[in-house]
């Protein structure tokens, strides 16, 4: 065969594969949303889940997902940014830095089910938290800390370029420099990382099965007691999230319309992921403009 023909055939094949993959994604997302669309109504989204009879909603699970997201971000972000600051600004080459890097790599490569089991052992059993919001949030923190740290480190290193010396030369301490000059300009990039992490947290199930638990209490919004078991905001109540709910519906299917509920839940999850993704993209673009000084 002529080399030119070969070249054309190869190009065509590459086009076909690439379009097929994009088509697959479009069909995949389309399928989920269309299948779930009949469930996407007010009663489904905010109604409480039934055991047995038909017509259950996903209200509590949806609330749990968001609440867990917030709690785990409240723990993960300060720790990840702190570690990012250390790695980017204070750490000196040596065994301790190598140890941290190896730890991050190890944590990042752990299967999430293993992280979930660690959470079960340490948070749920040893620290006696039981299946709870807090145990789930801590497991999620372990899962997301490596990514958060990496994102922060990169953002801070980028933001420090050039301006760090200028600040120190004015007699600022390193921490003053970090707090007043470097962090403010690193925030947009860190925020993009946070939103992407939020998408992952929202969809995570394996790490939560044995930490946040596979059941939820009825939500009582009248009390905001963080320690109480009856309050919706209680940190020590079992709190099944939406992603866990899908898994449980599939494996146990106790309600009559389990398929319908699972379809609706999958659609909600995917829509949330799309929203997080678009948000991160939008921020990323804004960040680009602010760096290049346009606008």
């Amino acid at each position: 065969m002529n080399v030119r023909t070969k070249d054309k055939i190869a190009t065509a094949v590459l086009y076909v594969i690439s379009s097929a993959i994009v088509l697959l994604l479009v069909m995949f997302i389309g399928y989920i949303i269309i299948k779930g669309s009949e469930s996407l109504n007010f009663r489904f989204l905010f109604g409480s889940s039934g055991v047995g009879g038909e017509g259950g909603g996903i209200g509590p699970q949806l609330f749990n997902s968001f609440y867990l997201l917030i709690i785990s971000l409240l723990i993960t972000v300060p720790l990840g940014v702190g570690a990012g600051i250390y790695l980017s600004q204070y750490a000196k080459e040596g065994w301790f830095l190598n140890l941290i890097r190896l730890s991050i790599e190890t944590m990042a490569s752990l299967p999430s089910i293993v992280v979930g089991l660690f959470g079960l052992l340490v948070f749920v059993i040893m620290l006696k938290m039981g299946y709870s919001m807090l145990a789930g949030a801590l497991a999620i923190t372990v899962l997301n800390l490596p990514a958060m740290t990496r994102v922060s480190e990169t953002a801070i290193t980028t933001a420090a370029k050039g301006v760090k010396e200028a600040s120190l030369a004015l007699g600022a301490t390193e921490w003053q420099t970090i707090k007043k000059v470097i962090l403010p300009s690193a925030i947009p990039q860190i925020l993009t990382g946070i939103i992407l992490a939020a998408g992952r947290i929202f969809g995570e199930a394996a790490a939560l099965l044995y930490t946040a638990g596979m059941s939820t209490t009825k939500l009582n919004f009248k009390s905001i007691n963080l320690l109480g078991k009856s309050s919706a905001f209680g940190l020590f109540r079992p709190s099944e999230t939406l992603a866990v709910h899908i898994w449980k519906l599939n494996s146990e299917g106790m309600v009559a319309d389990a398929v319908k509920i699972a379809n609706g839940s999958a659609a909600v999850l995917v829509i949330m992921v799309l929203i997080f993704n678009l948000l991160a993209r939008y921020l990323g673009r804004k960040l680009y403009y602010s760096y290049t000084g346009k606008k």
């Binding site: 050039g162 301006v163 300009s185």
Partner: peptide
Amino acid sequence: GMVFQRPNPFP
């Protein structure tokens, strides 16, 4: 005080 090679105003 010090002034550097590339202008480096804070953002």
